[in-house]
Design a protein around this nucleic acid. Structure first.
Lengths: 214, 214
DNA sequence: TCTATAATGAAACGATTGTTTCAAATAAAA
DNA sequence: TTTTATTTGAAACAATCGTTTCATTATAGA
């Protein structure tokens, strides 16, 4: 690791410009702390979570949190990315085991269905919740959500496109149009699943959604 | 108005039991205040709105708010009902002008589409937002949302049922199953509409949703 | 071992949170 | 006009908010 300690020494002694002395390092596991913070933010939302909640959940000192994450908002943004990459990993694993486009789409909906049924606290999807809570308040969150939406739709469009080439899916609409439809349907499913966790109801709902493609 | 002023006088002087003396009455327009509070809550969410915000928005004194609404949560519950009945009125007017079930469903989606396109602040639907923010935190909100969901699904089921009898809609699924599908699709549309307000995109999305019924 | 540097613990910061208090103002009924 | 019940205005409440401060502790490299 190379640290620039004092830029005024740029033309001076090279030893003072680049310091190789290393101080005390973080003692906590950053991923574990992020996971603990994620659970609190997921349960209470951003505005419903206090710094004290985060101190309690992570067992870190306030100063350590600020030293390592900067601010509540900054920590939340890291939490969002953490949550997102965890889900992406799940998705990608599910998609890797799919034989064709139809199975891939079904896998995506099934993963969401399982999350809903196992969500005993009725917290819903943290990304959907955050979108509804903060897009109109915080530009950095809006930007995150725009990127999330673009990535999701691109992924769905890719799958639909393949399905259409394989003639498994119809071409009544373009792959991009179907991708937006599926993206919207997933968000609807997550919202519906907050109060209705009946697996059969939701399976039938997913079934109806997917019929549009066949 | 009849006020029981002192129950210990129940068997005493009848005049002191029932008082007909009327005091100073509220000087503000309750509906107007509710509307002003609705705008703040809609914009910031429940946890993002402070009592000071409500004082500023309504121009009422804090004590008047507490005297008339009891608490922040209680005022919010009244705001939710206010918002809901405003939307119901819109819906019912739209439905009254519909000639058949197909038009009725299309009207519902069109009203939502117009709200999305006109929502310059990207606030989304307040009921959807509140569901995602508070169902897992506040039992009274959970109860409100359950009733809201039941009422919405009953209304949709009624329309679908008529459409199926008129043979405009298919019977691939029951009216109740289609109602849940439509309810979910509306929530998805509202979530999608927060970031995507392109009318053509959303029209095509609605089109795909409704195809399931035909 | 010594030195430089960052993480940590404890306390405090001013501002804001939701709510309460109470005297003053007010209006309907007597 | 007097009485009575309630709203209103202003101030204050304890508690909590997100954040900062700083002395102390700990560690990697010289």
């Amino acid at each position: 690791m190379i640290l620039i300690t004092n830029s005024s020494h740029f033309f001076g002694n090279f030893e003072t410009f680049i310091s190789l002395k290393m101080p005390k390092t973080e003692t906590f596991n950053r991923n574990q702390v992020l996971q603990q913070a994620t659970e609190v933010f997921h349960k209470n939302g951003y505005n419903g979570t206090s710094m004290q909640d985060l101190v309690d959940a992570t067992s870190l000192n306030r100063s350590s949190i600020y030293n390592s994450f900067g601010s509540k908002l900054n920590m939340f943004l890291e939490v969002l990315s953490h949550y997102q990459s965890y889900h992406n990993a799940n998705f990608n694993q599910g998609l890797a085991n799919s034989y064709n486009a139809k199975e891939a789409i079904e896998t995506i909906f099934e993963l969401n269905l399982n999350e809903i049924v196992n969500d005993n606290d009725r917290k819903g999807c943290m990304i959907v919740n955050c979108k509804s809570e903060m897009v109109n308040q915080e530009p950095s969150i809006k930007s995150f959500m725009e990127k999330n939406q673009d990535r999701m739709i691109a992924m769905l469009e890719d799958i639909v496109s393949k399905g259409q080439m394989e003639k498994i899916f119809n071409k009544d609409q373009t792959a991009n149009q179907y991708a937006l439809y599926l993206f919207s349907s997933i968000q609807g499913l997550r919202m519906t699943g907050i109060l209705n966790k009946n697996r059969e109801d939701l399976k039938s709902l997913i079934n109806t959604v997917l019929k549009a493609l066949y």
